[in-house]
Design a protein around this nucleic acid. Sequence first.
DNA 1: TTGAAAGCGGTACCAA
DNA 2: TTGGTACCGCTTTCAA
Lengths: 348, 348
Amino acid sequence: MPSARRPHAVTITDVAREAGVAASTVSRALTNPDRVNVVTREHVQQVAARLGYRASPAARALGTGRTATLALVLPDITNPYFSGLIRGAERQAEATGHILVIGDSEENARAEARMIERLTPGVDGFLLGSSRLADARILQFNAAMPVVLVNRRVPGVTSVSPDQLGGTRQIVEHLVALGHRRAIFLSGPPQSWLGRQRWAGISSAARKHGLTVRRLGPYHPSVEGGLLAGEAALADGATAVIAHNDLMAIGALKRMKARGLSVPGDVSIVGFDDIFGADFCDPPLTTLSDRTEQAGRSAVDLLVALAREQARLERDAPADIVAPTQLVIRGSTGPAPQPSEPARAASP
Amino acid sequence: MPSARRPHAVTITDVAREAGVAASTVSRALTNPDRVNVVTREHVQQVAARLGYRASPAARALGTGRTATLALVLPDITNPYFSGLIRGAERQAEATGHILVIGDSEENARAEARMIERLTPGVDGFLLGSSRLADARILQFNAAMPVVLVNRRVPGVTSVSPDQLGGTRQIVEHLVALGHRRAIFLSGPPQSWLGRQRWAGISSAARKHGLTVRRLGPYHPSVEGGLLAGEAALADGATAVIAHNDLMAIGALKRMKARGLSVPGDVSIVGFDDIFGADFCDPPLTTLSDRTEQAGRSAVDLLVALAREQARLERDAPADIVAPTQLVIRGSTGPAPQPSEPARAASP
DNA sequence: TTGAAAGCGGTACCAA
DNA sequence: TTGGTACCGCTTTCAA
């Protein structure tokens, strides 16, 4: 194995020699400019620039214990819902001088834990998006490393999450206003905190408004899962379907149409997330929207702050940002059909 | 500033002490198991496991010059076309024991170059997806670091790209078979190599089949860009529109419908990429599909090989994988309308 | 087969 | 304000 070492291009020593100062002075001039004489500083900076000096992150990390790297772990990188989060996190990471590494847990708590353990020694903290881990496990990681949760709240852990209570209330009121009396909730992964919030919010608001809601599932939170869920929903005879997320809502929509039902003529469908595609599927989806890119940015800011504090200081009173949500009403919801024409599939 | 150093949890020295051997022996037992006595090795491995030892990537990188980290740089993380690439790359990175960092260049060559420079000292190589850089710049980076291009070919640089020649031929033949005689190509970013390939392939195939194709643009390769492009296409009177990518195609589709045109009754629309949503927009989009997740995996494999070789050995005969593409025919294309009823928007 | 020791490239403390 | 120096944790000679 030749595997020769690729030496770091230009080192601090090279700059020091060229500038005629000590390595420690170069280090200061570059990272603590105010602790160095103006003349020296500018000279050093010039030489460094001329030589194209770039600090070695590894060396710096080894010395300081800080890697300037943040990890973002998600259950499904390909879910369009997460692209806003990814972009927001990436931008803010860059803006704060950090590097973003990304991990996909494939909807699997065990894989998520492994991923975190694998990444831990190389990062300053974790952004856990829609984590599938148990609360206890999250608390455990949080005790060892800075953690910011997105789309999840756990007492004692910093988090950013969309307002599901207000959101589900908007959904229920919308359906009730349209005359719906019976609805179905197509549930996603049991590990999804957001999903549990949604169900809780829907049940509570439904009770208040005299809407009957049954819950089906769990289903995989994907278009394929929605296809299955849609089929099951057909059997129930409810006039409105609320899906765990837009992916499932779109799947259910497809299924309804394939079975000859009209949406929203026979059944109304509501989703969550307002993902890419929700506005141009047929009919366009009524869905609860939240600002994921903004959430990504906020989460990074919180994480960077946590990572800096280092000590427990801040972690004693963790921030819990609850971001507003908004129901976007499109074509997939409409007046409830008359009871005389039940929403059933044509016989197969 | 308290900013106390968070010491690396369990070090090799801890393991060494606990196991009653030298640190160097622990290192060998863990990374070169065959250079250590079986008994010692197993003992050390056991102790390491018991103590929960995890090597410090920083320390390892500093010593070896290898970071076990790969960077994936893309022009737009939120384009659903890239989610397959991201996932494939992430999975294969994990499978080969690497960490994947991600960067968004926002369709901007300068930002892309900066990103690469910023990431360079911390990674073993680059995956450049749909790079917007000039060939010369890519060659320059390739000379300094292992680079694998995705969706781009540059002589001398390893790459994975979808077969655009065959793909555009399929598109043109499809349109010609439907009776279309005049088409429009809505072009994307001039920096897009894929875009240039597409135009070249379309022109050439069109010439062969007697199809007249005009090119409009450039437009931003997004739904918004497609909205604009669609408006411009209306003015031309062609019966078929080929968009730079599905995002633009969907935008154009929206625009056409908003202007009262029927798709494919008045105009047929074809896209590229077969992104999420292409199958459920209205009408579903006819588009050229390629396997991006597979491309991501292959690209990582190539990059890992390059990074290992270290020397120029392999780089003298770089691999150029050209992956097959397939036209997925859906509802957005149909027979050309009769010349007597030109495809025009209703007057405003 | 194992141990000792010299780096890798920075940072940070202590003197000067 | 600067220089010298001792690490940070791991890998890799070189000896034993």
